[in-house]
Each structure stands twice: as structure tokens, then as C-alpha cells.
Design a protein around this nucleic acid. Sequence first.
DNA 1: CCCTGAACCTGACCGC
DNA 2: TGCGGTCAGGTTCAGG
Length: 270
Amino acid sequence: MPELPEVETTRRGIEPHILKHGVAGVVVRNAQLRWPVPETIHSIVGDHIAAVKRRGKYLLLGMTQGTVIMHLGMSGSLRVCGKAEPYRKHDHFICCFETGKSLRFHDPRRFGAILWTTEEPYEHPLLAELGPEPLSAKFHAEYLYRVTRNRRMPIKSFIMNSHVVVGVGNIYANEALFMASIRPGRAAGRLTKAESEQFVGAIKRVLKKAIQEGGTTLRDFLNAEGNPGYFVQSLQVYGRDGAPCQQCHRPIKRKMIAQRASYYCPACQT
DNA sequence: CCCTGAACCTGACCGC
DNA sequence: TGCGGTCAGGTTCAGG
């Protein structure tokens, strides 16, 4: 479920419930996630949440003694629960607060991660090499044009590489390419300066709008309050193969690119 | 360095 | 109902 808008929606949802709250205990019901949840995660007990941040699709719980680095993978979600709520299947990690509330990490496919570091979190190997935030001033047309030169990889795969720019996953890559009238299979290095400008603008617009609408709900995604996101109603191409293009009414096409479903309008996108 | 494909997992859905 | 095949929002890693 989570791309950047879903992760940001989650961050905003949990922050008011956990910021400054003391950690009374930790329950690891299944440590086998993307990487094993380290034993050292228990060192957060007795500490408190000093900050709730996001870098790309990583959530960072800043404590006084270190940082919990979380990733929701493909199917992960975080929810703030009350005292007596029973565990659900796939609730793998629970952080219990002195208030009686708890933060629960739920992840059926277990591609997510929960790590602990006492070092500077942005220098952690998983974060150190990440590209710019897509909504920051560092992500601009000249940057995209420069890093795409001589790259033969399809532009869609290229933009989904978090070392290029963080937070653009499969849904929003498809949507932004449609908005910029660029086919997903085009070689990255063949984008013109004008197209780089279009594409960067489209990425910023689509992510901003999705965050405003609380993310995209597919299947069972609920935000930290248990509410769905509404961006799914705004999708122009994702999941719409065979349906009419909203611009020209010809059917949207579906094609696999690097093992990921790609959707585009063969008429509107070149 | 560049690029591709496999791997990590569970569950939903579709056709037979 | 059951069974097998396919697909799913992400990312790292091995290998050519």
C-alpha cells in the first residue's frame, strides 16, 4: 500500500498520538521481517518519542537514545490502538506507551522493516544514498535531465529508483508519466529538457494531491485513524487497462516493464 | 558502472 | 469447494 503519500499520511496520523509519549514496553510477535527486528529494539523502553519524521518511504521515530527506522514494504501499515484491542493476525511489532495506547505494525507480506540505530540516522546505509525528496527544491528539471543522460533504462523504472529520487512508486510513476504525456517504456536518456520539466512538475503535482487526499486506498489500506484514502478516485491510468482514456477515450494499455505493471494511453503518451 | 531478474512473503482473485 | 496460476503498493542483491 505505501508510496510516499501513504507514508506521509501515516506519519501525520500517528504523530499526535505518540509524540513526547514514554515507551512502557515493546512486544515483538514476529521478528522475521525484511531483516530480523534486532534485540536492541528493546532499548527504547523507558525512552520517549522526541520526533516523528519521514525520509522517502522510511519513517523515523526519534528517541533521545537513538532512532527507530521503519519501512512499510508492500503491505505494511501502522495504527494507534487503544488499551484493550486484541491483536490481529500479522501484528508483528507493538510499541506500548505509558498512556495505555500502543503503536502497532501490521504487515502480511513481511517485506517491511523495523531497525534501531544509535548513530546519525541519515548516515545509516539504507538512508545515506537516497536521492532528493520529490517535493523539495533539490528535485528539479535540470537535475532529472542531467542524471538521465546516457541511461537506456525505461524512464518508469529509472524514476522508481530511490537513488534517483525517493518516494515515486508504481502507482504515481504511472500517473505522473500520463500527466507528462511520456510513455513508460521510453529510454530515460531520450527525455528532452522540456519533457524533464513536464515530468518533474507532474511528479510534484500528483504527490501533493495524493497527500492532500490522504493517499490511495487499494484493497484494505487504512490510515492511522482507520480511514481510507481518497486518491484512488483520481487515478487516470493505474489499474484502468481497457478503460477509456479520460483525455482521448481510447483504451488504456497495460504492459509489464521490469516486472511491474505499467499503464498508459498509446495515443496521449509518446 | 549499468542493467536484468530473482528473491523475500501472504493473500486475493480467476478460471477450471 | 478445491486447486493451481497470477498478481499485488518495495527494495536489495547476485550475476552478466
